[in-house]
């Protein structure tokens, strides 16, 4: 009985949590201007979106493309910067210095994104750099890298520290030793960090809004925001929401399976 009540409570909450998403997906399969107005099953909206027939199709496609390009570049940069930093932090003997760097690393994770966005906006304004691809990518690297550092650190703790020294003794340069010894050991952490950064970057709205400048660069989030502000959402965006939801679902399943597999390995 107790178990039944407990389960019912969980299912009820899940129902509420997923109802809005389910409604969006449901109404992506009907050709109506507003949600709630069911006009029979149709794939028209998907066809419009994919064939470029939708009202702002070109802008939407460009926004999706921008989102992906920015995410790939930012996640790649974060992965390298964060992994090298993690090796450095791991080898710092001075506890105070180490604590200080770890504290700074935590700042972007504690700050609400509006603060991160505004602070970077002020930086770029002060330096006289106008917003665009470069500023958005730099901003994304700033809030993604801490997560890479956090996902690489545990791998370093588990690594045998003598292997790197051995490689150096055998005549490897630090760069060779890094590539041939350290990278294979921390690779799973790097990949998790990359996927995490990629997801965070795609998901970001506030930081992008403040750093994208006024030259018309739009990512999916900022485009949706502008669109929703104009009143009502372009119907085709419902399809996009459905596609994104499924993509995130698949990405998460991959991350989760990876992490449970890595846990089992130990």
């Amino acid at each position: 009985m107790k178990k039944f009540l407990a389960k019912s409570y969980l299912y009820l909450l899940l129902l509420v949590l997923y109802a809005p998403i389910a409604i969006i997906i449901l109404f992506s399969f009907t050709n109506s201007k507003t949600i709630g107005d069911w006009r029979g099953f149709s794939l028209d909206l998907y066809a419009n979106l994919l064939s470029g027939q939708a009202a702002h199709s070109a802008t939407i496609t460009q926004a999706v493309l921008n989102t992906l390009i920015i995410a790939v570049i930012a996640a790649t940069l974060s992965m390298f910067l964060g992994s090298i930093a993690a090796v450095g932090i791991f080898n710092i003997r001075n506890r105070k210095v180490r604590k200080a760097i770890q504290f700074a690393n935590n700042i972007p994770m504690i700050n609400p994104d509006i603060i991160t966005g505004i602070s970077l906006f002020l930086l770029f304004v002060s330096l006289g750099i106008s917003g665009g691809y470069v500023t958005v990518v730099l901003a994304h690297v700033a809030f993604c890298t801490p997560y890479v550092v956090l996902s690489v650190m545990p791998r370093l703790t588990r690594m045998n520290p003598n292997i790197y020294e051995a490689a150096l003794d055998l005549g490897a340069t630090p760069f060779q030793a890094f590539r041939k010894v350290i990278i294979p050991e921390i690779k799973p952490g790097m990949v998790s960090g990359f996927i995490l950064s990629f997801t965070l970057s795609i998901d970001d709205f506030a930081v992008t809004l403040f750093t994208k400048g006024s030259d018309g660069l739009e990512t999916l989030s900022t485009y949706i925001y502008a669109d929703a502000r104009k009143g009502g959402l372009t119907p085709e965006l419902r399809c996009l929401a459905a596609i994104i939801f499924l993509t995130v679902l698949i990405l998460l399943l991959v991350i989760n399976r990876r992490s449970s597999r890595l846990n089992k390995e130990q």
Binding site: L81, G82, I84, A85, V87, G88, I89, F90, N91, I92, R93, I101, A104, N105, L120, L123, L138, A139, V141, A142, T145, V149, Y164, P174
Partner: peptide
């Protein structure tokens, strides 16, 4: 190897 943190420290200070 502890010096490897330098690029990130510069980045953190700057951004």
């Amino acid at each position: 190897r502890s010096n490897w943190v330098a690029p990130y420290v510069l980045f953190l200070v700057m951004f």
